[in-house]
Amino acid sequence: MKLSQASISISDLHVHYGLSHVLQGVSLEVRSGEVTTIVGRNGVGKTTLINSVMGILHPGQGSIVLQHADIKKDLVGLPAYSRKNLGIALVPQGRRLFGSLTVEEHLRIVRPIEEGPNTIKTIFGMFPRLYERRKAYANTLSGGERSMLAIARVLVLNPDILLMDEPTEGLAPLLVDQIAEMINNLNEQGVTVLLVEQKLKFALDVANSIAIMERGKIGNIYPREEITDVEALSDMILGSA
């Protein structure tokens, strides 16, 4: 069980790509120990938002405040490596593995944020397939193996806040269920999760609250209990457009 729990308050965040105003004042509370899921149509800025929280993109305006048990810090302006040291980790869209590194090297090059339940040994116990393929280069892995490794390399960090951008993209249903179970386990350990997801059933399976994103802004935010099923969520997304 992790002791430190963390939350993030995003306030009036603006991000531009050249002349394109992608995030137009996003505000969102990612509550401690919960799974907050962002859903929405393609191109509304979900990936931009999650990359801004990690520090891969830098907003022109707004704040991203990290609240730990003992610290409160605005992340804007901090480089990505500092944010990792503060307990944040990212499973990016498209996996973005290091093609010239082996599976084992992906786990070896990272330094855990803090002592926690996950080590390289426990990770290999969790993903026996990755252990079998530990000497294989990432660019030779199958789609499922790539997804496992993208998740494994952040779990070994023992993060307090996990950002996940479409972790189920292109995966078979069995693997999607495994990832849902993994997120629920992490959540039970106290890890705060901010998830971007297109698969609505998966989003409902794991979320504590669901935020609907529309054209650069967060629209309504619903507690999971208020959404009856996938159709209802789909109607909410379409209704927000």
Partner: peptide
Amino acid sequence: TLGAVVRSCVDDREMAAAMGIRV
């Protein structure tokens, strides 16, 4: 491992930074 760190920066410097590497 140090060589792997450098290779990770060659492959994807943004992700290397996100993994905590001082690129």
